[in-house]
């Protein structure tokens, strides 16, 4: 186990290094000169002298490798640069956004799990029943609906037709409902399909027949054995879904004007505020990598068999 964690941590260092390099390179695929982009984002008149001074200030005259490592040094100490638009540190702006994005993402994940875990298990246990067919239809449609479409339709039914809920997300609880549902519904579609498959796979194993022969109650088999043995897979599925959730939150936050990092990055794209975009990608990738590492370790804790196989 210790060896496994050590190996994964070593891998983590490499992956983070590569991620930082790619994120840094992202700035250089953008058309135009960074100094010019910065000045024009700040609405300053661009003339050659100002431009040259800005280039010097931003260190653009240094070689690529020097710039990368000085940027990386800054990143390691929490300095992601400053926004072109208002000159505030990127890390502060992202932190403010995170305070809104994390609650939204967490509630979406909680709602998705609360819906799909029981439904996934029930439709596996009663597979081919009416319930299973209804759940599966729901899951197929959820899988085929892009989250922005769900958001638009929810706004139509709850805000325009009935004005139950606010369209623009204010900070109240009611403002959280629609963005949460828009993120949770497509996730449910996928979760139900995967959880159902996982539970069915467990139910087909020989030990289940063994338990039944010995007269163990079905309830106990499902909640004791099957659920315990599927939990490792369920955790992995959930961990991977967080990546989709991050991308989805950009779309959903923009629609509902939810002041999280997703809306921040869309506003930054419009304003050509590259350091914020860069910081956003970096932070999201780092969080995603760490979550995946955590689920991997958790997987081994729950299901230590994999260790012996190697």
């Amino acid at each position: 186990m210790g060896k496994f964690i050590g190996k994964r941590l070593l891998q983590l260092v490499f992956v983070l290094f590569a991620v930082s390099f790619m994120t840094f390179a992202l700035m250089y695929i953008a058309p135009g000169d960074p100094a010019e982009r910065k000045l024009s984002a700040q609405g300053e008149a661009v003339n050659p002298e100002v431009l040259e001074a800005e280039r010097e200030k931003m260190g653009l005259n240094q070689p690529f490798a020097v710039r990368y490592f000085s940027w990386l040094g800054g990143v390691c100490t929490g300095n992601l640069g400053t926004s072109y638009v208002d000159n505030r540190p990127v890390i502060t702006k992202l932190g403010e956004g995170m305070a809104y994005t994390v609650p939204l993402a967490m509630s979406a994940l909680a709602v998705a799990l609360a819906i799909s875990l029981p439904l996934g298990i029930l439709s596996a246990v009663y597979s081919n029943s009416v319930l299973d067919i209804i759940v599966q239809i729901f899951s197929f449609i959820g899988n085929a609906l892009p989250n922005f479409l769900i958001a638009v339709l929810l706004i139509f039914f709850f805000c325009i037709q009935n004005s139950f809920l606010p369209v623009i997300a204010n900070n109240s609880f009611t403002g959280l409902i629609l963005p949460t549902l828009s993120l949770a519904i497509p996730m449910c579609g996928r979760f139900i399909k995967q959880f159902r498959g996982e539970v069915i796979e467990q139910l087909e194993k020989d030990y289940i027949t063994g338990l039944r022969v010995r007269g163990v109650k079905e309830k106990k088999i499902i909640f004791g054995n099957v659920l315990h043995n599927s939990s490792a897979a369920i955790i992995t599925i959930t961990g991977l879904a967080i990546g989709t959730l991050m991308g989805g939150s950009v779309v959903i936050e923009s629609i509902f004007r939810w002041p999280g990092v997703g809306k921040l990055v869309m506003d930054s794209i419009t304003a050509r505020d590259y350091p914020v975009i860069q910081g956003f990608v970096l932070i999201m990738a780092v969080i995603y990598v760490l979550i995946n590492l955590a689920t991997d370790i958790l997987y081994r804790v729950i299901d230590p068999r994999i260790d012996y196989e190697k």
Partner: peptide
């Protein structure tokens, strides 16, 4: 490995946003 470290849609939004 490094590319899989990025959530796909996050990277797509950033790259499309930067490229225009």
């Amino acid at each position: 490995d490094a590319l899989l470290a990025f959530p796909q849609m996050v990277l797509a939004i950033a790259v499309a946003g930067v490229l225009g």
